[in-house]
Amino acid sequence: MNKTANSKAWLFVIPMVVLVAFNALIPLMTVVNYSVQETFGDNVFFWEGMKWFEQVLRSDRFHESFLRQFAFTGMILLIEIPLGILVALSMPRKGPWVSVCLVLMALPLLIPWNVVGAMWNIFALPDTGLLGRMINGLGIHYNFTQGPVAAWATTVVMDVWHWTSLVVLLAYAGLCSIPEAYYQAAKIDGASAWAVFRHIQLPKMKRVLTIAILLRFMDSFMIYTEPFVLTGGGPGNTTTFLSIDLVKIALGQFDLGPAAAMSLIYFLIVLLVCWIFYTLMMRGEAK
């Protein structure tokens, strides 16, 4: 095929180029600019090279919040994915209850992040919150503003409450796309419920589940608002995840250089993991 020169076509591309530039490229380049320089205000900059990157990568603080972040993401994935599948499996496939279930499932997804954080904060306060009082009433000492375990548990449960629905909806869509004949064929074979799940439902849900894992990974890896409102990163630093730490460095301490370097490292990690997922997914497709 011959390529035809069409200069008018550029006119149609320009709006998008401008949008992407202002939306992504210019902010990103500003961050790159900060990450290699030192500034003391007044728009005076000194070249620092890779110093901030080295500093961030060597700092214990970064290692700790990085590990916290991975632990948190791993934990919520381990809970939300199986739980989401379980809920999707027990949802009705037809009848009037389908829409009721779907709306109920969609509700948590519609609530803004900071509202979720505030809700759980009020809900879980040990002296006035319904949940906090109930747990303490059972004789278990619970105070998420003081105990690290309680703080982690509350953050994890809050995220599970907020986001399991997404996994449920995706898994449910996958389940609904399985033709009835598969179940009949399994029934004729005399296959057990476990075999139906393992050899029909799970393989048929593979694609949507990969997307669910990818989405939950990205979202939870960048989590900020909910734990910020709930615990503020505390007690101590125990729930200070990567983005909370980043904001503390950038806006709390105003260390723009290290914060910019950390942003870029953070960005590259997310990009790398997404690329790995994407490659694995595409390889599965090609097969």
Partner: peptide
């Protein structure tokens, strides 16, 4: 149905998606 001695083939191609052809036939 599983005690009737019946087998059935459908309009859609129904096989276990993660089994090889051999395992499918053997299932």
């Amino acid at each position: 149905v599983q005690r009737r001695g019946v087998s059935m083939v459908y309009q859609q191609f129904i096989n276990y998606p993660n089994f090889t052809v051999f395992d499918n036939i053997a299932s």
